[in-house]
């Protein structure tokens, strides 16, 4: 028994990032809006200024992103990833890049041909969650982060599942 406990404790050290839930990201006080980098090159030591890593492979962030995606009416143009007024997100074509910070930039800055700029209206953490969900739609994240069916009418599941 004791050995099992030790194993369990050891496992807990490597606790699953995929299941982590960060409700209160960053300091709640005012902070500058993140900028979008055009290059990964930078002086000095590498820093993770973009802060996206915590969201991209996290199941809960994807799920929250899905909620925001529906709530902020991304569905209106992109449907459940299939596109409509806006381009499809579930295909392999990414006009403005598929990397997290590129999608972040697309949401924050807006793009020509109708993508509005949400800069200043959606907090950074929420944008990153949207990015995580959009990337899950494009199957760019590990399979375990893909959302299953929703409790809404419509497609059983916009992404994967039902394999």
């Amino acid at each position: 028994m004791k050995r099992l406990v030790i194993v369990a404790l050891l496992l807990s050290i490597a606790a699953c990032d995929r299941e982590a839930r960060e409700y209160r990201p960053g300091p709640p006080t005012a902070s500058p809006a993140p900028f979008v980098r055009q290059t990964p090159l930078q002086p000095g030591a590498p820093t993770d200024l973009l802060g996206s890593a915590a969201y991209q492979e996290n199941r809960w962030a994807v799920s929250e992103g899905q909620r925001l995606y529906n709530g902020f009416n991304c569905v209106g143009c992109h449907a459940n990833g299939g596109g409509g007024i806006g381009p499809a997100l579930a295909d392999r074509k990414w006009k403005y890049g598929s990397e997290p910070d590129q999608i972040f930039a697309t949401i924050v800055e807006g793009r020509a041909e109708g993508m509005p700029s949400f800069g200043g209206k959606i907090g950074n953490a929420e944008v990153w969650r949207l990015v995580a969900y959009v990337r899950a739609l494009g199957k760019l994240t590990p399979e375990d982060t893909w959302p299953s069916r929703t409790d809404d009418i419509g497609e059983a599941s916009p992404v994967g599942n039902g394999q």
């Binding site: 959302p147 069916r149 929703t150």
Partner: peptide, 26 residues
Amino acid sequence: FMNTGPDAGWFSYVPLAGPEYGPGKR
């Protein structure tokens, strides 16, 4: 211990335990 403990109660009422409101493996 791996932060994947079930979290919808021992009765797991849906939809809270369902796919939309209970993401992850919990």
